[in-house]
Simulated scan of single mutants.
Amino acid sequence: MFVKDGTAELKRVLTSPPTYLTKADPINEISKKYQFELLDQSKLAAEYQQLITAYQQAGITVEQLPARPEMTNGVFARDFGGCVKEGYILGRFKEPIRFAERKAYEAKMQALGIPKIVEVKDGFFEGGDFAFLNEKTIAVGLLQRTDQTGFAEVQAGLAAYGYQVYPVPADARYLHLDMCFNLVADHLAVAYQEGLPPAFLQLLNQLEIEIIPVPEAAIFKHGCNLESLGKNRVISLKQNQAVNQALVAHGMEVIELDITETLKAGGGPHCMTFPLSRN
């Protein structure tokens, strides 16, 4: 078994260093604000190491895909696909600047011995839009980078394994579903509720998932871009004080990372992490 769900104990992850991320390419609402400034390479490297150290201290095995000049955004490992118990889904990037990552991550997954069970070939699908709600229920965001065709390919491919996959359309400005919704424990999520469709909110209610609400502004400050480690532990950003306090009030152990430079390219801890093993 590879990944049981989104909140089981995280055992192994895949990441990639930001070695060639020299500037914020204007491919999302956040990075557009920083497109004319060079990113601080030493800060990027230190922030990536913070994440790796946090995983290692939590007893999580870290696999790394070596950085390449043609993969400037490769640090956002989440986006090449999704992983379930039986294997992984290979997505398809929409932005040309990310095309080279697809083959590189596919080769890495083969080297790691994780089977490809679904491949998106006609539409677009990125892992930032992939979210477990429970062991057999998955939500897929339809925002800026995943389209209806890609969703249908994921839905059909996973149906063969008994998964129910639901579409979650939302404002394209939010980029990915993990920027406005994130499950942090079996029945607890952080989300901007007003930006999510009523049908999805109803589904969450049926599944008895409580929501810690955040304002729309928090989306663009990575207030929802958290990474569950399982056992009521979650990685968050130091700057997310209101969210972090609410998580602690709900019995969560919050591991705060002081990451700011990487965020300028449009991704946070959740974006930087591709789960390989959760059980």
Results as ranks from 00 to 15, higher is better:
residue 173 R to V: 00
residue 198 P to H: 11
residue 236 S to D: 04
residue 216 E to F: 01
residue 158 L to R: 09
residue 175 L to A: 09
residue 117 I to V: 12
residue 267 G to W: 02
residue 234 V to M: 05
residue 199 A to E: 15
residue 16 S to H: 00
residue 220 F to M: 10
residue 192 Y to F: 09
residue 272 M to W: 02
residue 189 A to W: 12
residue 55 Y to R: 10
residue 151 F to Y: 15
residue 235 I to R: 01
residue 82 G to Y: 12
residue 73 N to R: 00
residue 57 Q to S: 09
residue 214 V to H: 02
residue 60 I to P: 02
residue 4 K to F: 15
residue 169 P to Q: 08
residue 235 I to Y: 05
residue 191 A to P: 12
residue 20 Y to A: 02
residue 94 K to V: 01
residue 152 A to V: 10
residue 126 E to D: 08
residue 201 L to W: 03
residue 200 F to C: 05
residue 207 L to R: 04
residue 25 D to N: 13
residue 90 L to P: 02
residue 145 R to N: 06
residue 177 L to C: 10
residue 117 I to M: 06
residue 61 T to W: 08
residue 82 G to K: 04
residue 125 F to A: 08
residue 190 V to L: 03
residue 229 L to F: 14
residue 51 L to T: 14
residue 96 P to M: 14
residue 88 Y to L: 05
residue 229 L to C: 11
residue 193 Q to V: 13
residue 100 A to S: 14
residue 12 R to F: 12
residue 110 Q to C: 05
residue 57 Q to N: 14
residue 133 L to Y: 01
residue 141 G to N: 06
residue 129 D to Q: 08
residue 117 I to E: 07
residue 19 T to L: 07
residue 272 M to I: 11
residue 44 L to F: 07
residue 43 K to Y: 06
residue 86 E to V: 10
residue 8 A to S: 15
residue 157 G to Q: 08
residue 17 P to Q: 08
residue 153 E to P: 06
residue 127 G to E: 03
residue 38 L to Y: 07
residue 64 Q to C: 07
residue 83 C to M: 13
residue 72 T to N: 00
residue 205 N to D: 13
residue 230 G to T: 05
residue 220 F to P: 00
residue 8 A to I: 07
residue 104 A to P: 05
residue 153 E to D: 09
residue 220 F to Y: 05
residue 210 E to K: 12
residue 102 R to M: 14
residue 141 G to R: 00
residue 171 D to F: 00
residue 268 G to R: 01
residue 26 P to D: 14
residue 142 L to T: 07
residue 7 T to Y: 05
residue 240 N to V: 10
residue 207 L to M: 10
residue 85 K to D: 11
residue 272 M to S: 01
residue 49 Q to R: 06
residue 135 E to D: 15
residue 277 S to C: 13
residue 130 F to V: 02
residue 114 I to W: 12
residue 198 P to M: 09
residue 41 Q to M: 14
residue 148 Q to V: 14
residue 61 T to G: 13
residue 66 P to L: 10
residue 211 I to G: 00
residue 111 A to Q: 15
residue 58 A to N: 15
residue 123 G to S: 11
residue 128 G to E: 05
residue 220 F to V: 06
residue 122 D to A: 09
residue 7 T to C: 11
residue 149 T to N: 13
residue 265 A to N: 06
residue 33 K to M: 08
residue 226 L to N: 01
residue 154 V to N: 05
residue 175 L to C: 05
residue 24 A to N: 02
residue 169 P to V: 03
residue 115 P to E: 02
residue 133 L to V: 11
residue 99 F to M: 07
residue 150 G to K: 01
residue 253 E to I: 10
residue 213 P to T: 14
residue 68 R to I: 07
residue 162 G to P: 11
residue 27 I to A: 06
residue 70 E to G: 09
residue 165 V to Q: 01
residue 53 T to M: 14
residue 156 A to H: 10
residue 10 L to K: 08
residue 268 G to V: 02
residue 202 Q to R: 13
residue 31 S to N: 08
residue 219 I to L: 13
residue 91 G to T: 03
residue 64 Q to W: 08
residue 271 C to P: 03
residue 5 D to S: 14
residue 179 M to N: 14
residue 93 F to M: 09
residue 258 D to V: 12
residue 87 G to V: 09
